[in-house]
Amino acid sequence: MIIKFILNKKEVSIDVDPMKRLLDILREDFGLTGTKESCGEGECGACTVLLDGKSVTSCLVNAVHIDGKEVMTSEGIAKEPIGKLLIDCFDEPNAVQCGFCFPGFLVTSYHYVKTDGEKNLDKIKKSLSGNICRCTGYQKIFESVMLACERKPLMNANERE
């Protein structure tokens, strides 16, 4: 079937098997390899993207579900003001280790910082609880997201949205 959607703020359209996983569409049809496959069953969050502004595991989303919707990947988020802020906040404490899970963490924490943004450790832990990291022990990830929440109010008002 032909589906149309907005990918990283650009309108796109492809002819695709309606069951094809969004993850494969991104990687194979659009060359957006920032979205990673690790478990393929929604249990790790390495393939997290935003679907209509909400974080989802793209390995469990089918082509049919994105028709007419908006998809943002780590590549797109990296260009957004809050995305840039987060990247700097992950970079500063050397939070990134192997990095395979980090595009997913970037997407989920972007959603948190953008829609909530309260510097609250419990809330941050909960919001990131669908993303698994095996390297870091998470502490530096929490530290980075807390830092981003702290710095978000210092951004220009139009960049915070």
């Binding site: 390899t33 920032g34 990247i87 500063e92 595009p103």
Partner: peptide, 21 residues
Amino acid sequence: KSIRKIDAIPKLNGSWKFLDD
């Protein structure tokens, strides 16, 4: 000195290539 990692930013924005990429 805690200098920053050479690969952190490309890993975050998805441009750093892993095997399947």
